[in-house]
Design a binder for these strands. Sequence first.
DNA 1: TCTATATTTTGATAATTGTTGAATTGTTGT
DNA 2: ACAACAATTCAACAATTATCAAAATATAGA
Lengths: 128, 128
Amino acid sequence: MEKKDVLSALAALSQETRLDIFRLLVQAGPDGRAAGAIAETLAVTPATLSFHLTQLTHAGLIVQRREGRSLFYSADFDRMNGLVGFLAENCCGCPANPVTCVPVCAPSPKAANAPGETNDRTALEASV
Amino acid sequence: MEKKDVLSALAALSQETRLDIFRLLVQAGPDGRAAGAIAETLAVTPATLSFHLTQLTHAGLIVQRREGRSLFYSADFDRMNGLVGFLAENCCGCPANPVTCVPVCAPSPKAANAPGETNDRTALEASV
DNA sequence: TCTATATTTTGATAATTGTTGAATTGTTGT
DNA sequence: ACAACAATTCAACAATTATCAAAATATAGA
């Protein structure tokens, strides 16, 4: 992950509404949430939400998919791990100073689902 | 670490000059660097640097101390660990989904020094 | 105390950002 | 094709941010 990417990820997350959105999606797990549902949960205007979703998407932190007329957004856990990894990695700059930096976040696909739901996305594994 | 603090830390780090400053200080180790030295290394005007150092300080990411007529700034590794910890911690929201999230960065006091330098600050240990 | 050095504060300016109502695009079901 | 729904894009505005030159503050040494 390059500095430019880290910078835009940090910029995206440094805004309260966006941090809320991101954490909501992180907690929602790989399935994510429809834009409308996010707007309702966080009490944000559709236009405002859309603006922030775009920012988060451009920062690579979330991903969009369509399901019927709804657009679902979900957190990109790989990117998230990359960001944490970058910060952790660089907190130990000096090679003469070995430390343990092992942030690994790999939710299983069904993590946020009620029992019995279907789910065919599986791609997320540890990346650090 | 509260959301408010995370937010201001992220805001502080989401600006290129400040990210550069912070990483420079992280690499400099617990001793830190004089403001003037930072300004020279990063080619930033004193006024601009001072502005950013204030932001980073208010965000709790760096600490100031005086040494002669110079003001030395150094990274607050505890706070840094707290931030990474917060992000890592919340990347696994669902309790039914146990993962390994253990970012730990604890530089030894002499990490960035040339052999033979003195150093009496020792307080930094793992905090996560 | 006077002078030089190190850094911060001030004031002004240009650029970026967050927000909203209104209009637009895309999708579904009839 | 049409009406209803979901979300985005547009245009405009207020607020915040980054930057620098110049003035002010603090420390050290002669």
